[in-house]
Simulated scan of single mutants.
Amino acid sequence: MVEQDLRLLVSVVVSAEDERQAHAACRDLVDRIDGRVVEAGDCSDEEPGCWSVTISKELRSVEVHSDTRGDAAVLARVVRTFVRELAPNSPLPRVCCEPPTAWTVLDDPEVVGKLVAGAERMLVEAWSELAPYPERQPVAEQPEQPVPAAAEEPLTRLALRVEVAAQHPAGAQWQARAVASRIVDSAVITGVVQRADRVSVHLDLGQRPESPDQAVRTASAALGHPDWSPLDWAGGTAVLRWTDLLMPTTGITALELTAHRPDPEPEVVWPTEDEPGPWSEPRS
């Protein structure tokens, strides 16, 4: 049995004209839970007039029985306890767990509106502090990576698709980032597709030194789900898929990992003086 520090993140989507107004709307909640705002972002491209405010709260150490990536039961219990304290008379929504994090989404406007004026929904996450934690702060610009020498194998590009049973794209993106954090420290959302009650979130997980088939196997092992599909190939792309056979009405329903080596850029052959390019003046 070991002691583990946990952190709560509460992300609120609130109607606001600017960051100052968004902060002001969440001030009472920040004081109530003794937290601090770690990020505020304009999400009006998804929902006009909305801002997302993320509040962090550190928890005292708790005892767990598992490894350093976090105990699922402890993480889920922390989320349930916190939500019950916030809204004791409201039904408890389903808690999803993908160690090192567990989360739930409150999307009842009546419940959320009592906690934060003008709020539309709220995401509550518990993170294990011993696991890689995605600090929600601007990422410093990374120096350019050296181009591999011609004799070296090209790097593999790894991608993840997360299928989420959700009504709102923002909630699905939060859950997809939580899954991706088990593989990489930073993932980039490249696309969001919504249809009916499902949202597909596509993420770029960066480049890997392994071959495509080894890259998806390593990533699937990090995610830890059983019953992955056999390795499939689509052209030069390696594919692994996982589907929740219970088909839950909320939370993650399917995952797809893909990896490929980008085609080399074609060599540019510049015209010589005797072979003018298309921009050259016609010869007399």
Score class of each variant (00 low, 15 high):
250 T>Y: 00
182 R>D: 02
198 R>F: 06
124 V>H: 04
126 A>R: 10
209 P>C: 04
138 P>T: 11
235 G>P: 08
202 H>M: 12
158 L>N: 00
140 A>M: 11
167 Q>E: 15
138 P>I: 09
133 Y>Q: 10
148 P>M: 05
211 S>E: 14
250 T>N: 02
228 W>Y: 07
250 T>W: 00
257 L>K: 03
145 Q>E: 15
165 A>P: 02
151 A>P: 00
238 A>F: 09
212 P>R: 05
194 Q>N: 05
132 P>Q: 08
215 A>M: 04
128 S>N: 09
163 E>D: 13
199 V>A: 04
157 R>T: 11
258 T>M: 08
133 Y>M: 12
191 G>A: 07
161 R>E: 14
222 A>H: 08
247 M>V: 15
230 P>Y: 10
257 L>D: 01
159 A>F: 08
236 G>Q: 15
203 L>M: 10
224 G>N: 07
184 V>W: 01
166 A>T: 05
126 A>I: 10
222 A>C: 13
190 T>P: 03
220 S>Q: 05
193 V>F: 13
220 S>Y: 03
153 E>W: 07
211 S>N: 09
176 A>Q: 03
202 H>A: 11
236 G>A: 13
249 T>L: 09
190 T>H: 02
217 R>I: 13
145 Q>M: 10
258 T>G: 06
205 L>D: 06
248 P>E: 10
150 A>E: 12
245 L>P: 01
152 E>F: 00
263 D>K: 14
175 Q>A: 14
217 R>C: 06
142 Q>H: 09
172 A>D: 02
160 L>R: 02
136 R>Q: 13
185 D>I: 00
183 I>N: 00
188 V>F: 09
216 V>M: 04
134 P>A: 10
213 D>K: 06
143 P>E: 11
226 P>T: 12
223 L>T: 08
141 E>A: 13
176 A>C: 03
121 R>Q: 14
148 P>V: 08
128 S>R: 07
251 G>Y: 00
136 R>S: 06
185 D>R: 11
140 A>Y: 04
167 Q>G: 15
160 L>F: 05
247 M>D: 15
117 A>F: 07
250 T>P: 00
117 A>Y: 06
196 A>C: 04
186 S>D: 12
246 L>N: 12
176 A>F: 02
174 W>L: 06
240 L>V: 11
121 R>K: 10
164 V>N: 00
202 H>R: 10
120 E>S: 15
227 D>H: 13
135 E>T: 13
172 A>N: 02
198 R>Y: 04
127 W>R: 11
195 R>Q: 14
199 V>C: 06
157 R>F: 03
257 L>W: 05
186 S>H: 15
231 L>F: 12
148 P>H: 01
124 V>D: 05
249 T>S: 14
144 E>A: 14
167 Q>I: 10
207 Q>F: 13
212 P>Q: 04
125 E>M: 12
177 R>D: 02
196 A>M: 09
261 R>G: 02
130 L>F: 09
124 V>T: 07
203 L>N: 03
205 L>N: 03
258 T>F: 08
123 L>Q: 14
119 A>F: 00
255 L>R: 01
241 R>N: 08
144 E>Q: 13
204 D>V: 06
223 L>W: 06
209 P>T: 15
